[in-house]
Amino acid sequence: MANEQKPHILVTGAAGALAQQVINRLRDDYHLVAVDFREQVYLGDDIPSYCIDFNKRVFEDLFRRYHFDGVIHLGRIMSSQLTPMRRYNANVLGTQKLLDLSHKYGIHRVVILSTYHVYGAIAYNPALIDEEAPLKSAGLSMDLVDSVELENLANIYLWRYPDLNISILRPCNIVGPGVRNSMSQLLASKRAPVMAGFSPMMQFIHIDDMADAIVLAYGQPRRGVFNVAPDDWVSYQHALTLCGCTRIPLPSVPPILPRSLLRLLNLRSFPSYLMDFFKYPVVIDGHTFRETFGFRPQRPLREIFRYYRETKHTL
């Protein structure tokens, strides 16, 4: 592809390991511009990088300057980061600004990263949750409200502006080298808490596979919402054992007791608002994404767990 003919893509969340994996896969075929709400990162002389609040006027200057063809929005702030108000401003209002500018400047491809957490963890979840299931997390935890609102907002734009060709991806637990979310921190720790009497089935996708999935999705303008997950799963406690973690049982009742113990033990990798996800299974059906985009994960569970197990031995 001739240099002057390369399309321009805006990639958000550039400080995260996943965004950097996506950027490495795309840099040869696209002109990339990287932005992050939290910090500016150096990604090479060929990739302009900015630390910008999406709600500031200077953000629009990037759209005027680079004439983007597409957007890959990976900049969702996790529930463990920032205060609830700042997180809401970044996730919901920031995404709204991003989508408004995308429509204003004629962008024709948008990929948005969401999370399987929007489904909520309850005892009566079906064995496989498909994309048509209701999003229950907003009613279960205030810490996940902004994640659900981000999704609802993206869905509004998906149907209001079909020319944006929006794909919303709901992945299972993303893990692997460089990932700093709660689940990855738990698998990497030497001691990990469990809810006594519970060991729900869980799904894990390697960061390399998730980056491949995002690149595949961007290259095929299929509008809609898609779960992203392999077709295998494992119980949480067994996953900890395979990663070489020592399990710390926590009583599950009354609800105030495990929350108090978590604060006392300073176990930040096990946030209280996710406790139900360590009690009840949330297993998502990734069939539609696999068939629509031809996606086949390459990193099996044994490889994922071996990485965390071997990492402990090197510490």
Rank of each mutant, 00 (worst) to 15 (best):
G94T: 01
S80R: 06
D45I: 06
K56V: 02
D46S: 13
K97I: 08
N55G: 09
S80K: 05
H67V: 13
Q40I: 13
G70L: 07
I77V: 15
M78H: 10
F54P: 00
H67E: 15
E39P: 00
F59K: 01
Y66S: 05
R57V: 09
M78I: 11
I72V: 07
Q40F: 07
S79F: 14
G75S: 14
D61A: 11
M85G: 03
L99C: 05
R65K: 15
Q96K: 02
R65M: 13
G44T: 14
L74R: 05
K104F: 06
V92M: 08
G75M: 04
M78Y: 08
H103C: 04
A90Q: 04
R64I: 02
L82W: 11
S79G: 15
L99R: 05
D100W: 03
R57I: 12
L98P: 02
Q96W: 01
M78A: 14
L62C: 12
S102Q: 10
I47F: 02
G94A: 03
H103T: 06
F63G: 00
H103G: 10
H67D: 15
I77N: 02
S80P: 02
P84Y: 08
Y42R: 09
K104C: 08
D100N: 07
N91R: 12
I47Y: 04
S79Q: 12
R38W: 02
L74C: 12
R76T: 05
A34G: 07
H103D: 07
F54G: 00
C51M: 08
Y105I: 07
R57L: 11
A34S: 10
V92D: 09
F68A: 04
I107D: 03
D53H: 11
V92W: 04
H67N: 14
I77T: 13
T95N: 01
N89E: 12
M85F: 09
F37N: 01
I77A: 11
M78W: 08
L99E: 03
L74I: 06
D36M: 01
S49D: 09
D45P: 03
F63V: 03
D61V: 08
I107T: 13
F54N: 00
H108F: 04
L101D: 06
Q81I: 13
R76E: 03
R86W: 08
S102H: 10
Y42M: 12
L43M: 15
D45R: 09
T95I: 06
E60C: 14
K97F: 08
G75Q: 08
P48E: 04
S49T: 12
R65V: 08
C51N: 11
H73P: 11
V71F: 05
Q81V: 13
L93S: 00
I107C: 15
D36L: 00
D100G: 04
V35R: 01
A90T: 05
Y50E: 04
G94S: 08
Y66G: 09
L82G: 03
H73Q: 12
N55T: 14
D46A: 14
L101I: 05
L43I: 15
K56H: 10
I72G: 00
T83Y: 02
D36H: 01
L43Y: 14
I107E: 06
H73L: 13
H67C: 14
L74W: 03
R64H: 10
I77C: 11
F68D: 00
